[in-house]
Each structure stands twice: as structure tokens, then as C-alpha cells.
Design a protein around this nucleic acid. Structure first.
Length: 808
RNA sequence: GCCGGGGUGGCGAAACUGGUAGACGCAAGGGACUUAAAAUCCCUCGGUCGUUUAGACCAUGCGGGUUCGAGUCCCGCCCCCGGCACCA
């Protein structure tokens, strides 16, 4: 008979029992000792659940089970982020309605999720494409609209010609669509935005209050990009126009030799002289045709055209030629700069190219040689060639010059942000319709709450819509034509749907009661159970989902709908599981399915292997070579506990093993607390190895083993726990505690060094004085040998560890 | 270019606030059991030298430094991964 455990049978048995006995259904009405453990829900794609998902879900369940055993009331929900483009594209290709393909994918993926054996509370399951859910996504839109945080505006926006929709700034990476990699185009379109910029400072301040990875906080800070500086107003010689310029280095204003406007700048047209008009117009048009990626390519040579006009430097009253160039961005600051070519790399390149004068107005601190004909001198220093400001440190000069500008009414201190408003319109079908009606007499009218949800129309031929730049919803007459909720006359519905990041920016609130019909959530539950105590997911969402969710919660807080501002108190990012060094993705064809590993080895082995591969936040390159080792280990535990080895189970106690047991509990507890799963598993392995080395072990040693193994391998642990005649499940037993006294080793090994080089060691009981350790060390033959002919200058003793002799 | 993270055996990796580098596992080699194989159990396993032992020297990306002692701290480089990138 096989002596390996039957993982299929055991896992099936316990998963059924947990489900039947509702072990993971949490009654949220009592929030004492609550712990809300959240993982990022997944998109129900045709790829199904892959190893990357498992890497998120398996280890977090281990942590959750550990916390449950420590006495926390753990809430671990799961669901699907089910709206989105891939289902729609799939529909276009295969003629299957997104609702159907999504339902099929969810069905399959739910089965996969269940095989993990996680403590998911399936009663709280949700799906964002369900009308019962997106009704409330629309409701949140209305709340933001009420607050003036949702507005429609014509603006140059990012358009992905492959996805046939606009994208938020956050979804454009290096000028390309984050999803499909296609180069995005700039388009001037009327779109819906959420006013996230209004929360820039609070989004920054909140980061100090939450326990998030510092790299993620840094990414959000950089993304928000707050910079303090000065706004300067320039008069245009011979015109009424004023040019507003933002700078962080107003100290270099004496070195300004030209002004540059972005090609889209609103005064450009009116200040351009007749002689220059043709050239300027041509340049502006050429810029418009150039793609974003071309424009932002760093090594591109500077281009630009002189407008023929001059601006007056408000401090020096010098006349500065006004140019236009595409290196000045329209969306940042006011879309205009003053060029200080001596001290700014880009301005230097521009001045060099167009033979504009270059002036030095900063003397660098470190007296380095300055040759502005050869290279720029950026950085910090003291002012020169700056009139009465000469000799001032640049930092003081910034303050003083701004004061002068302010007194003359030519400027003031100001702050700029890189963050743009969140563009939420999508010209696609498979998303929540934006609940707005346009009426000729009433204008933009929000759909009343009682009329929600605005259901997605069914009568749409998605295939017909390919290539169209308008939303597929525009196809449906019955959807578009409606009565104005205000005046009752004819109106037209908004045809765009919402960015799916809106769906995911509040799902963690809905989890507390996804069936709730009185509102988006039951405040009595949400205000008790939120914020999320531990959130785990990939870092790729750092400046998207994780930023949007924070914004939405702050807005809802301001609307008095929530009693907290920050949704996720603690955040952790698991690393990425790559395959041949590349991230797993369908397009690369390197996705590894967990299914066959579950069939062959079981969930216990597989999840444990994922945790054993390396540090959880570092991820790993996928490799199934070591999975057998974990399987062997679980078998060793199985046989040991069943008494199928040479080690007999008796009543005898064993002092040494007892010490090992308490040490193991201590180390495993600490490692688990910090999600150091790999080392925790190593400790348990060492413990098992120690148990195998003796002739007999007692029940206490084994039961402790089962208890500390349980979060890692829940099914086999339950089975063994039952074998030891326990009625309740192992997870209802409390996590073992260690006794510091017993955990102390009786004997220790002391290393003996001479001048820091290891020359020997000896075993001795712990807790002895320095003198005794030195005496013992000096007795070692090898030490005597090395000490011959030398004088001992000093003995360094580290208690219970090491003796080092300094000799000459 | 700027901001994070990292570089340790054949491989995945350990090493708490500076204190025996390589725990644990994989792979490999040897042995026990077996008719045989699988499974299992035990042993060896960074490199060079040394007959085994004892031991010595070299080893944590590279070059310096601080220290009785450095994978760990400091200075200067190189490489890999992630993010931002003409942001004024």
C-alpha cells in the first residue's frame, strides 16, 4: 500500500466540510477583534487563474489562517472585476456576448479558486458587472457629481487607436497604451473627469498615515509631483496679452534670454507677427500631427520658431524674444517657460541650436570650471550678474526675488502638480454606463437615484461598431433616446461607460454586504469593518487603482458617507512570478496554469511551494524543480504523525526536543507575522528533521507541529488533527505560544577567533561568565598553537557566542 | 538622466541591531532496504592545497576604507529589475 497521503481525497473532504459547516462565513455584525484581509480581485479572463493569481491568493490565505488561529475574526472576501475590454474584444472576435463569456470564465475560475482551499467567505462574493453592483458604481458617480467632483470638459486626451477608447493619464506608459502597447494619440474631445487634482495635497498627506511600502508611497508622491515655485507674469511688448510662467528657479531670472510657449498656448496666435505667421502656423500644425511618443523622445533635437514678438522681463525690463517649441508641454504649469540656458539643460540645448545668448548667473558652490559654450551649469550656487541680488545663496534669492515680483504685482509664490484629473469616460460597451442625460433645455442632467441602474442595452451589434470612434451604446436607439428626468422632454443619454477603475475603487466597501439593496453599503458594517487591515496585491497598481481608491474614499468621507479617509491601512506587494524572466501574459504565450500541479500534488503542496521559493515580496522565476521537495516534506509529516516511521509515538518527554519545539514556535510566529513564509517553512522542516532523529516523540510535539503547519497546508493539517481525535477543526484551536525559558538552549557553541579568524570552537552550557569562556577558549589545542610566541593584548567576548583574541 | 529594489555554491535561497557565511530545499554522488525498480531512510556536497584526519589559504558584483572582527557600515565604480522621464 502506498504510504503517501491521498491529497485529492483529503482536500475534497475538508473543502466540503468547511463549506457545509459554513466555517468561513463571517457574521459581520460583531466586529470585535476584526481583521479585514483583502486581496486584489481578478479579471475573469480566458487565461483563467494562473500562477500569478495563486501567488497572491495562496500565501495571503496562509497569513489569514495564522491570524485566525491567533484569535482574530478574519474576513477574507473574493470576487471579480468583471467589466473590461478583453471580454468585449473577445465578443467581437467570436460573436459571444461579453456577459456570457464573462459568466463562463467566472464559473471556471470560481472552481479554481475553490481548489485553493482559502477561507473565502463566498456569501460575500461580488461581480462588478452585475447590475446590483454597477447600480451603486453609478450612484457613486452621482455623489461625486453632486460634490462638483465630476465634470465634463473638452481637453486634449489620450486616445488608443487599438482599444478605440480614451485612456486616463495613469494608463499611458511611455506614450503607449498600458493594456495593448499601441502608441496613443492626442485628441481634443469632451470627456468626463473626476477631479482628483482637488485632493492632491490630501493624497500626499495621507501617505504619512498609512503603512505602505515606501517605494509605493514614493511612486504616488512622484506621480502627484508637487513642486513649489513662483508664478511670473510677463508683459508682451506692444500687446495687451500677459504670459504667465511657472518656475522653481526664479533665482535665475537675470539669466533669462528668451521665452518659449507651448505650440498649443492660447496667446500664441495673437502675438505672432505677420512676418512669422506662416512659419508658426506650419510648426503648430506639424506638432499636432506628431505622436506623443515622438514628442517625448528625449534625444530628439530641439525644434522651434520665433514668433516675432518680445516679452518684458519684469525684473530687468529686458526684451526677450518669444519662441514656440514642442519641448514646452501644454499640460504642465501654464504651458510657458522663460529660458535660462546657462542653468537648464533643455534651455541650453535650445539656445545652442538657435544661437540665442547664454548668460551665467549662478556661481556653483564647488568652484568647478564653467564653460557655457560647452555645457550647461545646472545646480546650486550663489548669484552673480544679478544686480542687487549678487552674492545671495540661490535659495534666499528665490524668496527675495519672489517678494520683489509680488510687490510689483508681477508674480507670487505658487505650487504646481503633475497630477491631472482622472479621465473616466470610455467609448466602450462592457462597463457601467455614465448616468447622465443631455437635454436641450436643461443641459446636463444626472439620472435620479431612483432610476438607477442605467442598464446596459442588449440590442447592440458589437461587431458593427469596430473602427467607430463613438461608443457602441450610441447604436442603441432605445438606450440613447430617453426623457429628460427634469423637464420630461426628449433627452439623450450619455453613451460612454466608466473606466473599470471606478468599479474597483469601492468594491472593498461593498464586500461587507453585496446583497444590500438600501444603498451602496450598510454604513453600520462598513464603518466597523473598514479600513482594510491588510491589503495584498501587485505593485503595478501603485499609481492607478491604489491612487483612485484613496481618492474615492476621501471624497466619500467628505460627503459624510464614510468615517475614514484611507481605505487600506497596511499594504503589501507580493513579487512577480516570471517565466523565463518575462511576466506571464497571454500575448507572450508563457502563462503557466496551476491546475496540473494541483492534480498531481494538491493545493497544500502547491501553495507551500510557492511560499518556499523565496521572499514573498521578491517573486521568482517559475521553476517546478523543487515542488517534489515540499511534497516529500508533507509526506514526512504525514507518516511521522501516523506512526509509520521508525519514530514511535510515546508519552516520554524530551528536554532537547521541547527546546526545539519552543524555538520553532517562536521563529515561525515571528516569520509569519512579517510574511516571511520561506524561512518559516525552513524552520518547520528543521523541526521535523529533529523529530526524525530520535526514537520516540510524544503527542504534544506532534500536535504542535500540526498547529504550526496548519496555515501553510490547511487540508492535511485538518486530517491529521482529526486523527489525533480532536472534534473541532484545527483552526479553532489557538496558535501555540512559546516559553522563552524553555526555548533557551542548554548548551551553546562558542566560536573562538584570533584576530577575527575562526580557529576553533567548543560546546558549553549557556549563560557562563566571560572569564570562563576565555579560559575554555585558551585550552583549545589549535588556539594554543596559534598563540605561541605571541602576546595576548585583549579578549573580546560576545556572550554565549564568540571569543576573539587580539594578539601581537 | 532622476527615484526605488537587488547582485551570496551547480540551482532557489538563509544569515536578528557588525560576531562561526551558505540554514532549509533542489540537483548530484555514495550507502541501506528490494529479485529489481519506485518510494523510503542514512551519509557526503563552495573552491584550492593536504594521504583520510587535523588543518591552512581563497571566497558574498568590482576597487578602496572604518573595525579586534564587514555579506551587513562608509566612499567610488559595474551590472540586473521596477517606476518616472523635455514637469520648467
Amino acid at each position: 500500500m502506498s504510504k503517501t497521503f491521498d491529497h485529492s481525497k483529503i482536500e475534497k473532504k475538508w473543502q466540503e466540510r468547511w463549506s457545509v459547516e459554513k466555517k468561513h462565513t463571517i457574521d459581520l455584525s460583531d466586529s470585535e477583534n476584526k481583521l479585514y484581509m483583502l486581496v486584489m480581485f481578478s479579471y475573469p479572463s480566458g487565461d483563467k487563474l494562473h500562477i500569478g493569481h495563486w501567488y497572491n491568493y495562496g500565501p495571503t490565505d496562509t497569513w489569514a489562517r495564522f491570524k485566525k488561529m491567533q484569535g482574530f475574526k478574519v474576513f477574507e472576501p473574493i470576487g471579480f472585476d468583471a467589466f473590461g475590454l478583453p471580454a468585449e474584444n473577445y465578443a467581437i472576435k467570436h460573436g459571444i456576448h461579453p456577459a456570457i463569456s464573462t459568466r463562463n470564465n467566472i464559473k471556471y475560475m470560481t472552481e479554481q479558486l475553490q481548489r485553493i482551499g482559502a477561507m473565502y467567505d463566498w456569501d460575500k462574493y461580488l461581480n462588478t458587472s452585475d447590475p446590483d453592483y454597477y447600480k451603486w458604481t453609478q450612484w457613486i458617480f452621482l455623489k461625486l457629481f453632486e460634490m462638483g467632483l465630476a465634470h465634463r470638459e473638452k481637453a486634449p486626451v489620450n486616445w488608443c487607436p487599438s482599444c478605440l477608447t480614451v485612456l486616463a493619464n495613469e494608463q499611458v506608459k511611455e506614450g503607449s497604451c498600458e493594456r495593448c502597447g499601441t502608441t496613443v494619440e492626442k485628441k481634443e474631445l469632451s470627456q468626463w473627469f473626476f477631479k482628483i487634482t482637488k485632493y492632491s495635497d490630501r493624497l500626499l498627506a495621507g501617505l504619512d498615515e498609512i503603512n505602505w511600502p515606501k517605494s509605493t508611497k514614493m511612486m504616488q508622491r512622484n506621480w502627484i509631483g508637487k513642486s513649489k515655485g513662483t508664478t511670473v507674469f510677463y508683459e508682451v511688448d506692444g500687446h495687451d496679452e500677459k504670459i504667465e510662467i511657472f518656475t522653481t528657479r526664479v533665482d535665475t531670472i537675470f539669466g533669462a534670454t528668451f521665452i518659449v510657449l507651448a505650440p498649443e498656448h492660447h496667446v500664441l496666435d495673437s502675438i505672432t507677427t505677420d512676418e512669422q505667421r506662416n512659419k508658426v502656423t506650419e510648426y503648430v500644425e506639424r506638432t499636432r500631427e506628431r505622436s506623443e511618443i515622438e514628442r517625448i523622445t528625449n534625444d530628439r533635437e530641439k525644434t522651434g520658431i520665433f514668433t516675432g514678438s518680445y516679452a518684458i522681463n519684469p525684473i530687468t525690463l529686458e526684451k526677450l524674444p518669444i519662441w514656440t517649441s514642442d519641448f514646452v508641454l501644454t499640460g504642465y504649469g501654464s504651458g510657458a517657460i522663460f529660458g535660462t540656458p546657462g542653468h537648464d539643460q533643455r534651455d541650453w540645448e535650445f539656445a545652442t541650436k538657435f544661437k540665442l545668448p547664454i548668460k551665467q548667473v549662478i556661481e556653483p558652490y564647488n568652484n568647478e570650471e564653467v564653460d557655457l559654450t560647452k555645457r550647461v551649469c545646472s545646480g546650486e550656487g550663489v548669484l552673480i550678474n544679478s544686480g542687487s541680488y549678487n552674492g545671495l545663496d540661490y535659495k534666499d534669492a528665490i524668496v527675495k526675488i519672489t517678494e520683489e515680483l509680488k510687490s510689483k504685482g508681477k508674480g507670487h509664490h505658487s505650487v504646481n502638480y503633475r497630477l491631472r484629473d482622472w479621465l473616466i469616460s470610455r467609448q466602450r460597451y462592457w462597463g457601467a454606463p455614465i448616468p447622465i442625460v443631455y437635454c436641450e433645455s436643461c443641459g446636463t442632467v444626472p439620472v435620479p437615484e431612483k432610476d438607477l441602474p442605467v442598464l446596459l442595452p442588449e440590442d447592440i451589434d458589437l461587431e458593427k461598431n469596430i473602427g467607430s470612434e463613438s461608443s457602441p451604446l450610441a447604436e442603441s436607439e432605445s438606450f440613447v433616446n430617453t426623457d429628460c428626468p427634469k423637464c420630461g422632454l426628449k433627452g439623450r443619454r450619455e453613451v460612454d461607460t466608466m473606466d473599470t477603475f471606478v468599479d474597483s475603487s469601492w468594491y472593498f466597501l461593498r464586500y461587507t454586504n453585496p446583497q444590500y439593496s438600501e444603498g451602496a453599503w450598510d454604513s453600520s458594517l462598513v464603518n466597523e469593518w473598514l479600513p482594510v487591515d491588510q491589503y495584498v496585491g501587485g505593485q503595478d497598481h501603485a499609481t492607478m487603482h491604489l491612487l483612485y481608491a484613496r481618492f474615492v474614499c476621501m471624497a466619500l468621507y467628505d460627503h459624510k458617507l464614510l468615517n475614514f479617509e484611507e481605505p487600506f491601512t497596511n499594504l503589501y506587494h507580493q513579487g512577480i512570478i516570471t517565466n523565463d524572466g518575462a511576466k506571464m501574459s497571454k500575448s507572450k504565450g508563457n502563462v503557466v496554469s496551476p491546475d496540473s500541479f494541483i492534480d498531481n500534488y494538491g493545493s497544500d503542496t502547491f501553495r507551500m511551494y510557492l511560499m518556499f521559493m523565496g521572499p514573498y515580496d521578491e517573486g521568482a522565476d517559475w521553476n517546478d524543480k523543487g515542488i517534489l521537495g515540499i511534497h516529500r516534506f508533507l509526506n514526512r509529516v504525514w507518516r511521522l504523525c501516523k506512526g509509520e516511521t521508525a519514530v514511535k509515538i510515546t508519552e516520554d518527554s524530551n528536554k532537547e526536543l521541547s527546546t526545539a519545539m519552543h524555538q520553532t514556535i517562536k521563529e515561525v510566529t515571528k516569520d509569519l507575522q512579517d510574511m516571511r513564509f520561506n524561512t518559516a517553512i525552513s524552520r518547520i522542516m528543521e523541526y521535523v528533521n529533529a523529530l526524525y532523529k530520535v526514537n520516540n516523540v510524544n503527542k504534544d510535539l506532534l500536535e504542535t507541529l500540526i498547529l504550526i503547519l496548519a496555515p501553510f497546508a490547511p487540508h492535511i493539517s485538518e486530517e491529521l488533527w482529526e486523527l489525533f481525535e480532536h472534534k473541532s477543526t484545527v483552526f479553532e484551536h489557538k496558535w501555540p505560544e512559546w516559553d522563552e525559558e524553555i526555548a533557551k538552549s542548554l548548551t551553546i557553541t562558542v566560536a573562538v577567533q584570533i584576530l577575527g579568524k575562526l580557529r576553533g570552537s567548543f560546546e558549553i552550557e549557556s549563560g557562563l561568565t566571560d572569564d570562563i569562556l576565555v579560559d575554555n577558549a585558551l585550552k583549545l589545542p589549535n588556539i594554543k598553537k596559534h598563540m605561541e610566541g605571541k602576546t595576548l593584548l585583549k579578549s573580546i567576548v560576545i556572550k554565549d557566542k564568540l571569543v576573539n583574541f587580539v594578539v601581537k
